[in-house]
Design a protein around this nucleic acid. Structure first.
Lengths: 203, 203
DNA sequence: ATCCAAATACTCGGATCCGAGCGATAGGAG
DNA sequence: CTCCTATCGCTCGGATCCGAGTATTTGGAT
């Protein structure tokens, strides 16, 4: 029943760091830069604060290690990290587990839809229309990026984009359907319990 | 481009609390119990610690207020909260915004799929198979709950379950397709750069 | 009567997160 | 030669989160 959480490093950004270091040693700032360049900041929340925390955590866990500390001008030192044998194993184990067992997640939209009723039929349609528009735009953007990347790298390195695309398409489809059902009245709005202010509140 | 975050209370659990209080005054423990009874803990992460924090935050913001503090036996006091006029408005505004503007989210599975390559074709298929199985099971469970609820309450109060269903179905579909593509070799595994330990590391 | 399991109700402190800084330097405009 | 901005690279501290723990009580089973 428990989720997976009792993992030494839980922040997903740690996975990204590990992944990058599989390729070559890097210092934190370069990791952030690389993640953003490659558009991986769509899959991982890259915030500088967390990055340094996570790197420290990975080091404490022995999954990565400082390789050297260089200084270029009189700028802050850069500590370059590299993976360890343990780190390489844990990386694979981590990916494996994340794939195998679905994590409990709580997307904001799901929360909001739980209270769609509060907007009233017209308000709901208006809000959903706006979301649909935004999702469509973002979808277009992702498709563009995907097309562009498709020629450059093996497809394997782009599957996550295809997944994201699929999910967004599914969401958009659902939104459009629901809009339709509200407009045609197939999804009815029960009278809101406005007047039940002084209700007994049974059960 | 900023997300929505500069909101007084950001934890989605606050939305659930507000939603519950729209119906009737409650004390925190009862909120948690109700949320779980109604299966809303699928949409909101209900953890006791956060709950008390969030209630305090909502009170500080003036969206809810303590109504009375009763004591039943010699048990800890229960503070019963109720909504305020401001709270009612903010509740609607909050739902509206959550619907209108998609939040940046970082589902674990997306992170993991970004590194699917690390598992190798066989490992990937094995892991994806297991996930598919689990998703199928959870889907079955949600369908059951939905069927059960469908007779009891107006459909409007179940749309979020339909949404969740849709998304899980989409994920499952994608997983099955990818499994197929790996097995038939349509999704090729580029030779892993194992030997490039002492690589120059271009780009 | 007695004891244990479950329910009631909340608190606490550590872990985590992350944005706003901060100091330095390189590069280009004037 | 000077200034200004963009980039580099990191630190800090507040905010948030949340599981484990505490203490009491009710309701059976024995």
């Amino acid at each position: 029943m428990g989720s997976s959480s009792r993992r030494k490093v839980s922040n997903a950004l740690g996975l990204a760091v590990l992944g990058l270091l599989m390729e070559s040693p890097l210092h934190p700032h370069a990791m952030a830069a690389t993640l953003r360049e490659r558009g991986m900041d769509r899959a991982f929340k890259v915030s500088t604060g967390s990055l340094y925390d996570v790197v420290r955590a990975l080091e404490r866990a022995g999954w990565i290690e400082a390789r050297e500390t260089v200084r270029v001008g009189a700028r802050p030192e850069r500590t370059v990290y590299q993976h360890t044998a343990v780190g390489r194993e844990e990386f694979v184990r981590w990916v494996d587990e994340l794939i195998r067992v679905p994590a409990d997640e709580y997307p904001r939209f799901l929360s909001a839809v739980s209270y769609l009723g509060a907007l009233g039929p017209d308000g709901a349609v208006a809000a959903l229309r706006e979301r649909a528009e935004r999702v469509r735009a973002s979808l277009e953007e992702i498709r563009r990026a995907h097309r562009e990347a498709a020629g450059q790298v093996p497809r394997l390195f782009v599957v996550e984009v295809e997944y994201a695309l699929r999910m967004d398409e599914a969401e958009l489809g659902w939104i459009e359907e629901i809009i339709g059902e509200i407009e045609t009245g197939r999804l009815a709005w029960p009278a809101p319990p406005e007047s039940e202010q002084a209700d007994e509140g049974g059960r």
